[in-house]
Design a protein around this nucleic acid. Structure first.
Lengths: 101, 101
DNA sequence: CGTGTAAGGAATTCTGACACG
DNA sequence: CGTGTAAGGAATTCTGACACG
């Protein structure tokens, strides 16, 4: 359920190299609620590979001129869809096991 | 072929938290040739999740009193074995495709 | 709105060395 | 051999703000 992909261990400097985005931009997108890094004890932001992927998506949309609030809506929608998908999957699994019972 | 697990993106402070090992130990095990972090442009060491796993293995062995050179030999052996395994697998795949041809 | 930058402080990382054993 | 520590410097990260637009 929890893989390396979601483990928050990458500091902002590395994320900046990985994405080509300035630290300013990365912090700003967080401020806008587009991603949620964790913090180390001392307050340094740490990101996951998933966060890096999100940032790359944001970078693409920004290049197209899409505003951060629009990007956020899109991401919420994608999340909803995948939530629905997960619910359906769970339903199917339940159905499967009910038949077998 | 190349996954998040092998991507070198974690700085030594985070690795230290993740493994419970002091930075001194982590650098020393590198000096002994047990793992090979990369460096950022500015010279900071960066590690992968694989490196973190290696360090946890080292920590276990060190607790048992095994010396670093012994640990290194073991790791070389394990590597050889998995190399052999990979060769065998490749052989099987080739055989499979030869039959189909 | 989105992003750059200068500012000052606090925490990080690096290397080479001394210490103990 | 394996690890701690103090030392000094260089690079990182953080926040709040001013700037432009």
């Amino acid at each position: 359920m929890f893989s390396y992909k979601d483990k928050k261990v990458i500091t902002i400097g590395i994320v900046s190299e990985l994405t080509g985005l300035s630290e300013r931009k990365i912090r700003y997108y967080e401020e806008r609620g587009l991603l949620f890094p964790e913090r180390t004890k001392r307050g340094t932001r740490v990101y996951s590979f998933s966060d890096v992927e999100i940032l790359l998506t944001i970078a693409d949309k920004r290049e197209e001129g899409v505003q951060t609030c629009e990007i956020k809506k899109d991401m919420m929608n994608d999340k909803k869809k995948s939530d629905v998908r997960n619910q359906m999957l769970r339903g199917q699994i339940n159905a499967h096991f009910n038949i077998r019972k």
